[in-house]
Structures are given as structure tokens and as C-alpha cells.
Amino acid sequence: MNTSMTPVLSARGLVKTFGRVVGLDGVDIDLFPGEVLAVIGDNGAGKSTLIKCLTGALVPDAGSMSLDGQPVQFKRPQDAREAGIETVYQTLAVAPALDIASNLYLGRERLRPGPLGSVLRMLDKKGMRRDASQALADLGIGTLQNMAQPVETLSGGQRQAVAVARAAAFGSKVIVLDEPTAALGVRESNQVLKMIGEVRSRGLPVILISHNMPHVFEVADRIHIQRLGRCGGLITPQSHTMSEAVAIMTGATTLDETPGRVGGGA
């Protein structure tokens, strides 16, 4: 990775505690243009906490962040969204009783043109359904036909697809995916990986959290290993093998003991 490039998203010294539990213990992270940065780590290593701090879902206790080199502070999720950062949280954050189109446009609904929209605040339901269907088709999801179908009637994979499509459709700077394939079958996982590829080919950088090492090694440009609330190392699929990555992740070894192949690292 060309280190002279300005990172799109960058954070320094992020700390987040929950009472006595330390979620993040001073983490630095940089995301460069057009790259897929994977974040791996054991359960409770602080992966979700890290991306929640980056996306305004949590406010870090300490640390600083910048977007395109400009310092930023996100107080709530919509601050990050307005800055162009779209996130698929581990919990998906969809409203089960609302339909697919409503979920895609949740929090940024489109109004009808003319006085129906400006005076009566009427939603452009038809337009939103049409574009939602287009957004899903863009990501290669053909199985969802009826945009008026409530999300709770969808399978886990389809829900995941809705959440990912929402992020892909609106992300203009960064897309963050927290275990987007965790509950998915082989077919759906492959579809999400394909989406990540498509998003990257649009030039958007992606942060991907996953426990699935083959997936990580397939799509990631760099891998941030999160361990016990800290960054345990920054590697690439070229510099380290999967088993080395797992060893660092679980603490069986450290990055210093396993520096990887020459030209690797970050």
C-alpha cells in the first residue's frame, strides 16, 4: 500500500470502556482509497466496538479521527452516514415490520415531487420501490422481487442482502461490514463477497470484519488483527499465511516473532 496516500478514514488512539470492561485500548487504524481492509480477532477482541466508534454508533472515550485528512467527530450514526460512511452492523439494524424499500431508505426517505411532497410531506413510495429493486439488482440479488415485502418474512441471507444493499447504495466514501457473512450459507456468502468486489471496483474502500479466514484472505488487501482491545498487527494475505494470522490473533505468537515474508507487513 502506498503510505504517502492520504487515508480516507483514519483514527488514532481510540479508547472505549464499558464500566470496568475495556473494549478498545488505544487503537490506530487507517483505511486507504480503494482497499478492502479486513479486521479479524477473537470474540470480544473489540472488532465491533472499533467499527462502532468509527461510524458514530459509539462515542469513543479518547482518540481522534479524520476523514479525507479533515478531523471529524461522530456523535451519532447519522453523522457518519451524512459524511458518506455506510455500515452494516453485526445486528443488521433493519426494522423487521417495515418492507424492503422502507428499510433501504430508512432515515433518508424520498418525498414526492411538487406540493404533495413539499406541503403534505408525502413519501415517493413508488420511486423508492423502483430504485430499491434496482439497488438489489445492481448487487446481483435477483431473488427479491417484491419490494413491499416486510423484512421479517425474509430469510437471514436475504435480510443480510438488504442491509448490504443499503450500505452499497448510499455509501459514498466508506463501507463498513461487520460479519456480513456470519449467518449465511455458501451461496449467500459468495454473493456478499461478490458485492464487496463490486463495491471496491467502484473505488470505495471497505472495512470487512469476518471470522472466515478463507473469505478474508480472498478479498482483503490488508488485515488488521485485533487482539484484547488492541491492534495485534497489520498483515497482508501475501505476507502471512492463514495459520500465521490465526496464531497472531489467538496470541500463540506475535507479529514480532512472525514478521512474515519480506515485503509483507503494512
Binding site: 451519532r76 450514526p77 426517505e109
Partner: peptide, 21 residues
């Protein structure tokens, strides 16, 4: 209206609604 959508979303799952902005 968008307000109506938000009422449903908040009642459905508060945390999801918050994360959805």
C-alpha cells in the same frame, strides 16, 4: 410520511432504528 415510517421503525427495534440513523 417519513415521520410515520420512523414511528414504526422505533417501535419495531429501537437500537436498529438508531443505527439506521
Amino acid at each position: 410520511t417519513a415521520w410515520g415510517r420512523h414511528v414504526y421503525a422505533v417501535g419495531d427495534d429501537k437500537e436498529a432504528a438508531r443505527l439506521a440513523g
